[in-house]
């Protein structure tokens, strides 16, 4: 299994990704903390007005949504270009190509974990009660990582052949931002659409994060199983696509 055999390469590539990302900006890593906080403030001001909610809980609600969403967008965006942006490696050196995708998504996960750490500090500062349910966090983030990696596998291999996929994905992400409960409470969804709305695995993940971080309760077991099944299903699809398409990577990048 390449995951174990090439663990040193994965580690070095992930760290290099992070170094390159942060060292070219003046504030470096601070940006990934400032950015979601500013977004939270703006969105809170706008949407608490729209939904007539003015409690501080809603700000945290939005922040959890943003941090969750940011991991998904940054991971899939970086994952998608991970093959095409390394033509030299893909054309000249043999190693499992999945490693390029995996280490890109992993470096986004590390950025995201730091954002979650800041979120956690804010929770403590605002004296939101922390419960045992937080122990589920590593499991949920692992499943979420699997889903983002699966999407990236599919996207990166298709992007080699379809170079405007990033434009399409951009539009889909825009739509996804409003299809997920990030800036509005789920109660605004009409009853008859609710079942359909809850099919979205990202919605379920956000709800689980809010349960364990904000509400301090254990999420329904079925929800955790539901996203695990999605993760498994997407990994199979992503892996299948990638292994079919990787055969001509070296000719097409």
């Amino acid at each position: 299994m390449w995951l174990i055999e090439y663990k040193d390469l994965i580690q070095v590539l992930t760290i290099s990704n992070l170094k390159i990302k942060y060292q070219s900006s003046v504030l470096g890593f601070a940006w990934s903390l400032i950015n979601p906080l500013f977004m939270m403030i703006i969105l809170y001001i706008v949407f608490s007005g729209i939904f007539k909610i003015s409690e501080k809980q809603f700000a945290i609600y939005i922040l959890i949504g943003i941090v969750t969403w940011r991991f998904f967008t940054s991971a899939t965006n970086l994952g998608m270009i991970s093959i095409v942006s390394q033509p030299g490696l893909v054309k000249k050196i043999f190693f499992p190509r999945e490693i390029l995708v995996f280490s890109s998504v992993l470096s986004c996960l590390i950025s995201s974990l730091l954002e979650f750490a800041v979120l956690f500090c804010i929770l403590i500062a605002l004296q939101v009660s922390i419960s045992w349910s937080i122990l589920l966090y590593p499991l949920i983030i692992l499943i979420f990582f699997g889903i983002a990696y699966a999407f990236s596998l599919g996207l990166s291999s298709l992007f080699v052949y379809y170079r405007d996929l990033n434009q399409i994905w951009d539009v889909l992400l825009q739509a996804g931002f409003f299809l997920c409960p990030i800036v509005y409470p789920i109660t605004v969804i009409p009853e008859k659409y609710l079942a359909l709305y809850m099919l979205n695995p990202l919605t379920v993940i956000m709800e689980i994060f809010r349960d364990i971080l904000l509400n301090g309760i254990f999420p329904p077991l079925w929800d955790v199983m539901y996203i695990s099944l999605w993760g498994l299903f997407l990994l199979i699809i992503g892996h299948y696509l990638f292994s079919r398409l990787k055969i001509r990577f070296a000719e097409e990048v």
Partner: peptide, 30 residues
């Protein structure tokens, strides 16, 4: 594969960092 040397190098990283990066790409352990 000495097909083309230095393809794994990243210009924004130092020589030290690149030795580790390129070495791992070529399959060396840390």
């Amino acid at each position: 594969p000495f097909i083309e040397l230095g393809v794994g190098f990243h210009p924004e990283l130092t020589a030290r960092e690149n030795i580790f990066l390129y070495g791992s790409i070529l399959g060396l352990k840390k």
